[in-house]
Amino acid sequence: MDSMQGMDHSTMGHDTGSDASSLSPGPDMETPPPPEAGSGPPRAADAFWGAKAMAASREDLRRSHGDFPVFWFQGDRFETQVRDAKDAYLWDIQGYYGGPTERLWFKSEGEGEWGLSPDDAEVQALYSKAIAPFWDVQAGVRQDIAGPDTTHVVLGIQGLAAYRFEVDAAMFLSHRGDLTARIEAELDQRITQRLILQPRIEANLSAQDIPLLGIGAGLDRIEVGARLRYEVRREFAPYIGVDQSWRIGNGADFARARGQASSGTSFVAGIRFWF
């Protein structure tokens, strides 16, 4: 953290320092209140207005100051992909309902060729709990809604890593006993106040070959992209970008065996939105 040496220190401590000797005398160690301070909840108003009349307003105050729920819905990627082969669509949405530390999350992503049903699609329902200032741990279920019918249990972590990388990493254990994992990271780079470049990386891993799903053991697929969005409003940002994906190792073999390309480049255009 040598970089901190470079910070502008000229404004620090200027006329702001403490000089304890000039303060009026007083205790400098915290001690508990005396017994005369009483105990129990604050109920002084009950004597004037009645406990019943106070109860509703007390509850309203408690529920509106601090831990109250909000509903958030985000279309992080909602795009068309222009490829050498047939053009495709992709969605990647998520949202939550809950307070600042405890939330119910849902996620869905999928893709397919225009005019056809998706090749790949899933929905997740998760319970999410804050474990650190910037991190939530998430647990729940995932249902694949395209391809072979597969249900997974999910254990993941989502949050903001150092340098402001938005990270979403999860392990999936399918009802057939297959263990896979996915790690996604995105980084917002502001070019101006509204023009934002977002590099993105996604890696899909598997503990075993899953021939049924065409997934190879180890690092199966990696995807790197960059999206340039313009925030017309914070909640609404059209973007363009490029996305490159590779199947790796056994995953690449599975792809070739199925007559699919083992890598591909897409030019993308879409909107990012939330409310």
Partner: peptide, 30 residues
């Protein structure tokens, strides 16, 4: 001269927009 010191910490989480005294929001200490 004050007979005791009471120390209160102003605490928060900017990302989650949580604000509190001593790490507990009003909803937890009403």
């Amino acid at each position: 001269e004050p007979s005791r010191l009471l120390e209160l910490h102003l605490t928060g989480n900017m990302e989650r927009y949580m604000w509190s005294f001593d790490g507990r929001m009003y909803s937890a200490v009403s």
